[in-house]
Each structure stands twice: as structure tokens, then as C-alpha cells.
Design a protein around this nucleic acid. Structure first.
Lengths: 222, 222
DNA sequence: TTAATCGTTCTGCTTGACAGAACAGTTATT
DNA sequence: AATAACTGTTCTGTCAAGCAGAACGATTAA
């Protein structure tokens, strides 16, 4: 079998996936409801996850995600541009544009928000780290598609311009501008983006944002 | 059995634990060497891990950690003080002291380095995020112990002083000063610390570092 | 050519995990 | 107070799922 898996592991990972942004602590019964697995089964799975430091059991009987999961997870980002390099760039972009600045990388047919610095405006595009978004929609997605391997014909324009602008493409209220970050070897590393309320992205605002983006993207590579 | 586990899950997690700070991409054979498991077994385990987005298989046949592992891992930190709050504080501390600044939380009988901003000096204490260190040794450890639940009698002095200083306690070359970060309810959230080469921590330097630490710790809670 | 890798496929045997009931403890409802 | 509806946990017989190990072809090195 080419797609061979281990059911017990699948189950254990589905237990972990029961956590989400809003629910950081879950009870055994809650796991059972979300996964559809039996409590006795989950208890054993959690036993292994706990032993590995992937979850911790609080004194209130609620399970939370553990430190070892996080430590391993933080290794993921290290393959790309490190935090020390990208974060100052995003902060500069946020200060220059007053909008939310972010850095995306490609993951198969999706894009992942690896770093972000949210705008400080009351009406802001609030991005979540690790969010998985489609490649086809949104400025950063289309940039990753256009400058990645096997770019579709439809992305010819993005390649030519060297940037992408999205006005309410993925979410109707949100506009975004994105430019690629390219290696010395021409390898695509990711996409820088600035995003905010669509009505704030006038033609002239887009121009200045784009200038800042281009400059910062250059500063990332060489 | 009170400590019931699932072997397949234990194995899968031991496969993940084969990754470390230096080796972010591993081959199947390398997994086999490190875990002692058979290649056929590992292949199936990786199948499940890959399906869940916990690992990704590169075109070179090497496995790396996946984005979903990272996304879940980042939820771990959210239970504590979020990055947006702690990081600026650490940066200020680093700028004020020119030493490495860090934020620790307790995890059972250990402490975890949740956030850190490394010093920019050539001879610096280079901390790794997620590092698990003992509670008994080191300034931050003793602070977490003293202000946590069930503090031992030996930590009376730390409680009284409101800080801990370690001169070569855990590592002979490293000195550190740490203060607790306490909730509005008096709940211990973590420990702020500044650390560096032991010879730089003169009595007068300790005093000024301590002032900065106290001030920033206060700014964290309100 | 030989030898030592690599990743992948296949199979019989056995062990380990599952379902489900039953348990005691706690909280909510009446 | 008494019921009901929840918790989390323990136990066990049955069954299949995962393991060990060999065998495979494809690379790469000597």
C-alpha cells in the first residue's frame, strides 16, 4: 500500500486536532464529543501524548497542549527565514504603512502565515500565525503561486509586475499587497504582504505601500 | 492500569523526537538509526504524521516537521502571556542591560524558556526557545519555585528579597538575575531573567539590572 | 563486479488496542 | 433529599491491526 498509515496514530493526532484557537483546554468528555472516539480510547491516547510532553493534564482535569509539542513546532519555522530576520522587517512595514504586515510561505497547495505584526489601528486585519489559506485567492497567495515552481499561465501578469494586489478577493473587506522574497539563487523564499481595510487602499496608498514592500523585500535577501 | 499508553503512538512520537535543533530534515534510514525501529514500521508511522501535516516529505526524500505541528505548538504559548506582550519587554531589557533577556514558565518539575531575546554581544548567553531546564538550579528556576505552589523552606530568602541571583549556579560561566511575574490575583505567571557572562555581573551591575527587571515585571501585569 | 547503501513492498503471527459495560464521584435538577 | 445526568476511570473478551523480518529493485561507492 502506498498510502499506509497507523490507525492509532491517526486517532491520537485527531485528538490533538480537537484543540483550536479558542479552546486551549479540553476535558476528556469534550474530546470524546469532538473526535467521536470512546473515552477509554482517548484516555489511553492521551496517556502517550502526556508521556511525550505533547499534552499536560491540569489539576482541574483539563488537558492542554504541552511544551514539547511547541518546541518541535518551533523547529518548523527555522527552515525558513528566522524570526530575528523577518520580524524587524515586518515591524518596519507596520510602522511605515500603519497596516498589518505578514510573511507567508508555501506549503503544497496552501500558504501559511509564518510571521505577522498586526496593525495597531482599531479597524485592522487581525491575522493569526499558522493560519492556512488558499493559494489561488489573495495577494500573497497569487505571488507564491506566480514565483513558485510550475506557475500557471494566469499568473503571467503577477510575474511581469513583480507584485500582486487584492481588493476584497478572499474576504470582501480586506485588501492586500504582496511582493515575493527571492533568494540569491532565484529560489522563492516567501511573500511579504501588507493588508488592511479595503477602503484605505486607494491608488496612491497602494503605490507607497508597494515602494515600502519592495525595499524591505530587497533588504531581506541582499 | 493507571499509566496506560498506546505503543503505536509512543513510537510515532519517538520518531518526531528524532528531530532536534541541528537536524531539521531526516531520512528514513536516519530515523531508523535514532529510534531503533524498523524502517517498515517508521514508514507507516510517518504516513500518519504526514497525513496530519505534522511532517512533510521533501522532493529529496527527507522528512521535515510540518506546519500543523507548529500551529498547534503555538497554541501552547497562548495560555501564558502572549508574544505581543512579552517580546517588547524582553527587547527593552536587552537594550537596557546589553545581556540576554528571557521569560520562563513552570512545567511540573522543570522550567521552560518561553521567550528570549539574545544579547548582541559577541560573548553572550545564547538561549534556545523551548529549552527545558531544572527548577532547583539557576535564578529563574529558583524564582519559579519560590513563588509557585508549595514553595520549599529553602526558598524563603528568595520570597523575601523578591528576586534571585545566580552566579555560575547551573553553568559555571553564566550569571543570571530573575524576578517573578505575578498576576493581579497573585498567581505566578512566569519569571523574567537577564543572563550573561558571570564576570560582567558585578555588584553594581546586578543592582541596575535588578531595577530594570523589577520595572519591566511590573509593566507586564498592570 | 561487488558491496553497501537507499526506500519500498509483502506476509504470517501475535500482541496490543478497541468497544462497551460497569464503576464511583460530582454537579444539577427536581 | 432524591433523582438524574454528568463526570473520569477501570476492567475484560474479542478481533484485527501493526509488527518483525525478509526480499525487493534502484542508487551510489569502492
Amino acid at each position: 500500500m502506498p498510502q499506509d498509515r497507523v490507525e492509532a496514530v491517526d486517532r491520537a493526532l485527531s485528538v490533538l486536532s480537537a484543540f483550536n484557537e479558542d479552546d486551549l483546554s479540553l476535558s476528556l468528555a469534550e474530546f470524546s464529543r469532538r473526535t467521536g472516539l470512546y473515552k477509554s480510547t482517548i484516555l489511553r491516547l492521551l496517556g502517550s501524548l502526556k508521556a511525550a510532553g505533547f499534552v499536560t493534564l491540569g489539576p482541574d482535569g483539563l488537558y492542554s497542549l504541552g511544551p514539547d509539542l511547541w518546541r518541535l513546532g518551533s523547529y518548523y519555522r527555522r527552515r525558513y527565514l528566522p524570526s530575528e530576520v523577518v520580524m524587524p522587517v515586518l515591524e518596519r512595514l507596520r510602522n511605515l504603512t500603519k497596516e498589518t504586515a505578514s510573511f507567508y510561505v508555501r506549503d503544497g497547495e496552501n500558504r501559511i502565515c509564518l510571521y505577522r505584526v498586526n496593525s495597531e489601528r482599531p479597524m485592522r486585519h487581525h491575522l493569526v500565525q499558522g493560519a492556512r489559506l488558499p493559494l489561488e485567492k489573495g495577494a500573497a497567495g497569487r505571488v507564491l503561486l506566480a514565483f513558485g515552481p510550475e506557475p500557471p499561465i494566469s499568473s503571467q501578469e503577477v510575474r511581469y509586475l513583480g507584485h500582486a494586489i487584492s481588493l476584497g478577493e478572499r474576504e470582501s473587506e480586506i485588501a492586500a499587497i504582496s511582493v515575493p522574497v527571492v533568494d540569491d539563487d532565484g529560489q522563492l523564499l516567501g511573500a511579504l504582504a501588507v493588508s488592511g481595510l479595503v477602503t484605505r487602499f486607494s491608488e496612491v496608498a497602494c503605490e507607497t505601500h508597494l515602494d515600502h514592500l519592495r525595499q524591505e523585500a530587497r533588504s531581506l535577501t541582499g
